[in-house]
Design a protein around this nucleic acid. Structure first.
Length: 1060
RNA sequence: GCCGGAGUGGCGGAAUGGCAGACGCGCUGGAUUCAAAAUCCAGUCCUGGCAACAGGGUGUGGGUUCAAGUCCCACCUCCGGUACCA
């Protein structure tokens, strides 16, 4: 008998589709278009993972469904084929990366075709095709030729960049430099994450916790010439336009967070004028050693800064800021007799600033900081600059030079690993310099610490330990005073215990809302690397750094803030920002966590940059760049035979043959750029090329672009929530600004498929003597060993499901219920040995079963464990479908089951059919594939029981099933006597009239509990329903003698009698 | 710490505020078979009861409502991401 045999049916239809180019999309859409895209895979040597077909099946169902509904569907597939693994394979075996890549692509293509996805294979592309990366390089040139006009909020051609007069006057070289400074693609010499093991530099996001994301190798920071893309210019648009797209809120939140926009103020702190030659600051560095104690390392006495005075008399100034004419009387830095000059300088400076606007770039006499809490300016007790800050040398006093040099050296050498994992305690060093707080003329010490990052804001901060956790920790560590300037809100109308009187006294934040506060015994004050600010032992600290303190970083009411006292945080911020601006010492500022995109890699297997470096007669680079002409693209990789890493950060292409590496153009010798582009480059725009993959004269035809864009549905893994999606949005916006594309966003709707875990596992734990211990006692020790309560090493034992049972909310050994075991599913991994290979599944169950199971497991976006018996279950369903149609008593050919006839369907049968059509249709539209399949199962269960099955019901069912199990459906469609593929058959329509039931069963509740059920006409009115309910024997019995206070009747739903 | 997501039978999971557990897996019983596989039929949340039926039940504790898995408040647990961004 012919049983359902996918091994025969599936290849047959795959061949048919390929031969007939069934799924080739039209060049231009006819009618309504639908562009459905999968995140294309990196074709690894391991082949497809069962995680891949999850999203691919979902999009395939949507596409097949849409075709049957008459839409023009674009559904392409390609390969993100540049990448490190092929290059590492080349290093090991000498096989050129292109060979490895092609082999892997062939395998991936075979696997995808084996699953019957309806891709338009005519549009297949790989990022490694010269015909493709020609245009990747072209887009790079476009970025290179674009500057961002912040006022117009868009990228414009470099030719339109206005050149300031002074630059113009300085000559052509200055103009070139000015232009280079404004390109979206630019070069910098920057510390990068060099990974010796991988032989490459990694982007920040490729370094996780100080080791490489791939492989987990250590990473160190070294300076290197790099290409950067100015994505930060687009930060606000990338954030704003998230409003336009239909994406999961979680992904949008991740992107917003990554962009990390914050609003605050930049404020200049006066530091005085540099003294020629020495690099210290005359104005504010404590001058004479006479007033200093030697800054001995490990000093245990609380190091005090000078001049922190109570703010009892916050100057008579009526404006918020002390006027330059009358500096705050308490602010004269009384600790050091010689500091008067700094204040008079400060006064001059302030006076000058009041007359001129806030300078665009800070001069050397100030330290510019960025803060989101300008309302805490009065609480600033020190400053911190990053070790890489350009002002470090300038601010360091001779006494501190060796300590500072030492600290900065170490910071520079520190890998990210050192900065994260090991940096449990704050470190820092005093520069010897002081800055003057513009709001109260206080002199505060300037420190260097690596908790301030050069890459954010201005690389310098004012530290407000009372209201910032990090500053608080640092201040605790180094004994720096802590001044409270924000009173936490009172809880429930009553001041919380511990708040100090905000009167003239001070300061120390006492307390308060446990949520926002962190207390810390002052006793933990390790003597850390530092040299302390000079001591002024005759001064009493206002806030003893030794007393237990608290840090409050929330919003509240201003105290100790002169004229601003009593303001709430928000109002204060607004007002002081305006006041600072008026005084010429500050301005409102916006900052982003987002950094410019490090765009070069030291790989061979990536897109070469279409850039030439001009060489002088001695072969040295002149610093002038020359971009290749678009007509000269693609620039292909050179033929190379040697891929071995030379272990230096320079790229492998440095070893390229000379004729590639050093071309001569127009008599000038050049050296090619030897960095290559990162893997993200190719995936940044592939969705555009799919629309016009063979175009030899443009990246994409504008007409086609306008017709097909945007991508209507984009499905892929959540791991791309930030990088890939942010990078492609960035490129897309540049292409939009430059008129290449017509939409501001590339992907209208985005869905992340969930992760597929391995099979559920039960795990028990045994001691060396084979006695069991409970899972609750087991943990991992510092070395990653699994140990028991007594530190003994235990063995992990995989248990069969039949030796465990559920007890309460945990699983225990059936043989010994006192022993709890772990039960969970783990991420698939080679090391755990729980990887499921699609080839195996297809061989055993067929592609349709695999597809169906992937969809039936649960909601698309959920994380779910694999289950082979589950696959077997859906295979059982497909077997039943087969037998519903095919007479399995005949061997030779597919003959319809004798139960199928042309009899007119009964109303019941029609109801089942139409309900199924309606529900399956709705479920596909909402991507609820698991429930769609359940509805089809119900259909099959119903019709299997019938001995006569009207063809009029079964034929539409085949069409419903087709998007899910296309091979089987085509086979059945053919057996039903159709000649052509069903791929373009009209999707069945349902008739609500056929679904409508004449009578329905409605529950009757008494005080909310179901007590009976009544059968009533489907369209029964409220009154009829209530009457029918009262008439019910059981209900009337229960209602007898009771007082009904309320009757709720919901037509078609229920009747509820509420008793007293 | 922070940001997401999720907690419902033995398992995967269903439920526009309106009969909790659709559908599937597994399990139990039956039919078929010499036997098995396959297939078909029936049952399967828990407790009590022969049964009809009664009571309980969606992570925990409160609340709103005639009615809560679903809405609100507080918390617990797990999974994923992220981390000195001033």
């Amino acid at each position: 008998m012919p049983r359902y045999n996918p091994a025969v049916v599936e290849p047959k239809w795959q061949a048919y589709w390929a031969e007939h180019r069934t799924f080739a999309a039209p060049r231009m859409p006819t009618g309504e278009k639908l562009y459905v895209l999968d995140m294309f895979p990196y074709p690894s040597g391991d082949g497809l993972h069962v995680g891949h077909p999850e999203g691919y099946t979902a999009t395939d169902i949507v596409c097949r469904f849409a075709r049957m509904r008459g839409r023009s569907v674009l559904h392409p597939m390609g390969w993100d084929a540049f990448g490190l693994p092929a290059e590492q394979h080349a290093k090991r075996t000498g096989t050129p990366p292109r060979i490895t890549t092609e082999k892997n692509i062939a395998n991936f293509r075979r696997q995808l075709q084996m699953l019957g996805f309806s891709y338009d294979w005519d549009r297949e592309l790989a990022t490694t095709d010269p015909d493709y990366f020609r245009w990747t390089q072209w887009i790079f040139l476009l970025l290179f030729d674009t500057w961002y006009d912040a006022e117009a909020r868009r990228g414009r051609p470099l030719a339109e960049l206005p050149i300031p007069a002074d630059i113009k006057a300085a000559g052509p070289d200055a103009i070139d430099r000015y232009r280079d400074d404004h390109r979206l693609a630019y070069q910098i010499e920057a510390p990068v994450n060099w990974c010796p093991e991988l032989g490459t530099v990694l982007a920040n996001e490729e370094v996780i916790g100080g080791v490489s994301e791939r492989g987990g190798y250590p990473v160190v920071r070294i300076p290197l010439r790099q290409w950067m893309l100015r994505i930060t210019a687009y930060a606000d648009r990338l954030e704003d336009d998230l409003k336009e797209v239909d994406w999961p809120e979680g992904v949008k939140a991740l992107q917003r967070n990554w962009i990390g926009r914050s609003t605050g103020a930049e404020v200049d702190f006066y530091v005085g004028h540099p003294v020629a030659g020495i690099g210290t600051v005359a104005g504010v560095t404590d001058p004479g050693p006479a007033s200093l104690r030697p800054a001995t390392a490990g000093a245990t006495a609380p190091p005090l800064t000078s001049g922190l005075s109570p703010l009892a008399s916050p100057s008579g100034a009526t404006a918020g800021l002390p006027s330059s004419a009358s500096p705050s009387p308490g602010a004269t830095g009384s600790a050091s007799a010689s500091s008067g000059s700094s204040l008079s300088n400060f006064a001059d400076w302030k006076a000058a600033r009041e007359k001129s606007p806030f300078p665009r770039k800070p001069a050397d006499d100030v330290l510019r900081i960025y803060t989101t809490r300008p309302d805490t300016l009065f609480g600033a007790t020190y400053m911190v600059i990053a070790p890489e800050h350009p002002a470090v040398a300038r601010l360091t006093s001779p006494e501190q030079k060796s300590a500072v040099d030492d600290y900065c050296d170490r910071a520079a050498r520190k890998s990210d690993l050192d900065r994260t994992d090991l940096a449990k305690t704050k470190t820092g060093v005093f520069t010897g310099a002081y800055a003057v707080n513009p709001v109260n003329a206080e002199r505060i010490p300037i420190w260097i610490a690596d908790y301030v990052l050069m890459g954010y804001g201005t690389g310098a901060i004012m530290a407000v330990p009372a209201h910032d956790e990090r500053d608080f920790e640092f201040a605790q560590q180094f004994g720096i005073p802590i001044i409270s300037v924000v009173q936490p809100p009172v809880a429930g109308g009553v001041a919380v215990a511990g708040v100090i009187d905000p009167g003239p006294a001070h300061p120390v934040a006492g307390v308060i809302d446990p949520g926002d506060i962190q207390t810390r015994p002052a006793s933990l004050r390790p003597a850390t690397e530092s040299s302390s600010p000079p001591l002024a032992s005759d001064l009493l600290p206002l806030a003893s750094p030794l007393s237990p303190l608290a840090c409050f970083s929330g919003l509240g009411t201003a105290v100790n803030s002169g004229p601003y006292n009593g303001l709430d945080t928000a109002t204060f911020k607004e007002r002081i920002t305006a006041d600072l601006a008026a005084a010429g010492v500050g301005r409102q500022a916006v900052n982003y966590k987002l950094r410019d995109w490090l765009f070069s890699r030291q790989h061979f297997w990536g897109e070469p940059f279409p850039i030439l470096h001009e060489l002088d007669s001695s072969g040295q680079p002149t610093g002038r760049l020359r971009a290749l002409e678009p007509a000269d693209l693609p620039l292909d990789l050179p033929a190379m035979t040697e891929f071995k890493s030379h272990g230096r950060p320079e790229p492998p292409l440095e070893q390229a043959p000379a004729d590639w590496l050093c071309p001569t153009l127009g008599g000038v010798r050049y050296k090619r750029e030897t960095n290559t582009m990162p893997q993200w480059a190719g995936s940044c725009w592939y969705y555009l090329r799919f629309i016009d993959p063979k175009n030899a004269t443009a990246a994409i035809d504008p007409q086609l672009e306008a017709a097909w864009m945007p991508v209507d549905l984009y499905i892929g893994g959540a791991e791309h929530a930030v990088l890939h999606l942010l990078y492609s949005r960035f490129w897309h916006k540049v292409l939009f600004d430059r008129g290449v594309v017509t939409t501001s966003e590339p992907f209208r709707k985005l869905v992340n498929q969930g992760m597929i875990l391995g099979e559920m596992e039960y795990t028990g734990y045994q001691r060396a003597d084979e006695t069991w211990l409970s899972a609750a006692e087991v943990r991992e020790d510092a070395a990653g060993q699994t140990v028991g309560a007594a530190q003994e090493v235990v063995t992990v034992v995989k248990l069969a499901p039949d030796v465990v049972q559920k007890q309460g909310d945990a699983f225990v050994l059936s043989a010994n219920p006192a022993i709890k075991v772990d039960s969970r599913a783990y991420k698939m991994s080679k090391s755990r040995g729980n990887v499921v290979n699609p080839d195996t599944v297809v061989a055993e169950y067929g592609a349709d079963s695999l597809r169906l199971y992937e969809m039936f497991m649960g909601p698309l976006e959920a994380t779910k464990p694999w289950s082979m018996t589950g696959v077997n279950g859906v295979r059982g369903f497909l077997d039943r479908v087969w037998r519903l149609f095919i007479n399995d008593r005949i061997d030779e050919r597919n003959e319809l089951s004798p139960a199928i006839d042309d009899s007119p369907p009964t109303p019941d049968q029609l109801r089942v059919l139409h309900r199924t059509i309606k529900e399956v249709t709705h479920d596909i539209e909402s991507l609820g594939f698991n429930t769609a399949i359940a509805k089809m199962m119900e259909f099959v269960n119903y019709f299997t029981k019938l001995t006569t099955r009207p063809r009029a019901c079964l034929e539409p069912f085949v069409l419903l099933l087709a998007p899910f199990a296309p091979h089987l459906s085509e086979e059945l469609w053919q057996a039903l006597g159709h000649k052509d593929t069903l791929a373009y058959e009209p999707w069945p329509k349902w008739d609500d009239a056929a679904i409508r039931e004449t009578s329905i069963e409605v529950p009757v509740q008494i005080s909310g509990k179901v007590r009976s059920k009544i059968t009533v006409p489907a369209d029964a009115s409220k009154e009829q329903l209530e009457a029918a309910a009262r008439a019910d024997a059981k209900v009337s019995e229960l209602l007898a003698g009771q007082t009904v206070t309320k009757v709720i009747v919901v037509p078609k739903r229920l009747v509820n009698f509420v008793l007293k």
